[in-house]
Computed example of a mutant assay.
Amino acid sequence: MTTTLNKEEYIKLLSETVPRIIDTEIEHKRLLNEVDKLMDLGENLTDEQAEVLQLLVTLIEQYENKVYQMKAVTPLDILHELMSVRQLKQKDIVEIFGSKGITSEVINGKRSISKNQAKALGDFFHVSYALFL
């Protein structure tokens, strides 16, 4: 079902909210505040207000997807984090890898973690071994 908007009312709302592509955190917060104001109206939103709300939400989502993207975490990142949290040094996990050389290569990203090593790391840190694969 397509709704016919009152052009004058819609233009008035646009001039009040001034929606635009978001490129700063200040603009992001400003448009979030505008969304809050419209959301507070609940079911009393006019068709024009609902259209502006949808536009603002689209702009906010676009900005947040660009700015707040999560970085993919590697098995090595997980190992480093778990070691850091537990204040472990490379020497503390040599047993898992079998030698200082292999441990050094894994820690420095020159060698990937094998399936057997992943299982041993999972047991050692009490987490799923799948985190290391």
Rank of each mutant, 00 (worst) to 15 (best):
Q87E: 14
N44F: 00
D36Q: 08
I22M: 05
Q90F: 00
I11P: 02
K12T: 12
K119M: 07
Q49D: 01
K91P: 02
A120F: 00
M39K: 12
E105R: 14
I21S: 09
Q62L: 11
K29Q: 15
Q62P: 02
V73Y: 01
I60A: 08
N44E: 07
L79C: 05
H80I: 08
L38Q: 04
D40H: 14
E25H: 12
E9F: 11
E9V: 07
E95R: 09
L13Q: 08
E8W: 03
K37S: 05
I22L: 03
V35G: 06
G42W: 00
M70T: 14
L59H: 11
I21G: 00
M39S: 10
I11L: 13
T74N: 08
H80F: 04
E105K: 14
M70E: 15
T103G: 01
G109M: 04
E27G: 08
S112T: 10
L79H: 04
K12Q: 13
V106L: 05
V67N: 11
E51P: 02
Q87P: 06
I22D: 06
D40C: 15
Y63F: 15
F124D: 03
Q87D: 12
K29R: 15
I21D: 09
G42Q: 09
L88F: 09
I93K: 11
K12H: 14
D36P: 01
D47F: 01
L82D: 03
G42I: 02
A118F: 00
K37C: 07
E64A: 11
V73S: 11
Q117G: 15
R20P: 06
R86I: 05
I107R: 03
R30I: 11
Q49P: 02
K119S: 07
L38C: 05
E81I: 10
V57I: 15
D36E: 11
M39I: 12
N108E: 07
R111A: 06
I60D: 09
S114Q: 05
A120C: 02
F97I: 03
Y63H: 09
D47C: 00
S84N: 12
L38T: 02
E25G: 03
L41P: 04
V67I: 13
Y68C: 06
A50H: 01
Q49R: 01
L88N: 07
I102V: 12
M39V: 15
Y63G: 06
K89P: 05
H28T: 06
D36M: 08
T17D: 11
R111W: 04
R20Q: 14
S114A: 08
D23I: 15
R20D: 15
Y10W: 10
V94Q: 11
I21W: 07
V57L: 09
Y63V: 03
D77Y: 02
L55E: 08
V18W: 10
E43I: 05
G122E: 01
T24W: 08
N108I: 03
L45F: 00
H28V: 07
M70H: 14
N108M: 10
E81G: 04
K37F: 09
Y10C: 08
I22K: 09
R111V: 05
I102R: 14
E64N: 06
T58G: 12
F97L: 01
E64C: 07
N108K: 10
L32D: 10
Q90Y: 03
K119G: 01
L55Q: 04
L76A: 01
L82C: 01
H80G: 03
K89C: 01
E9N: 14
L31R: 07
E16S: 14
I102Q: 11
Q69N: 05
E51A: 15
V106A: 06
I21Y: 10
S104I: 02
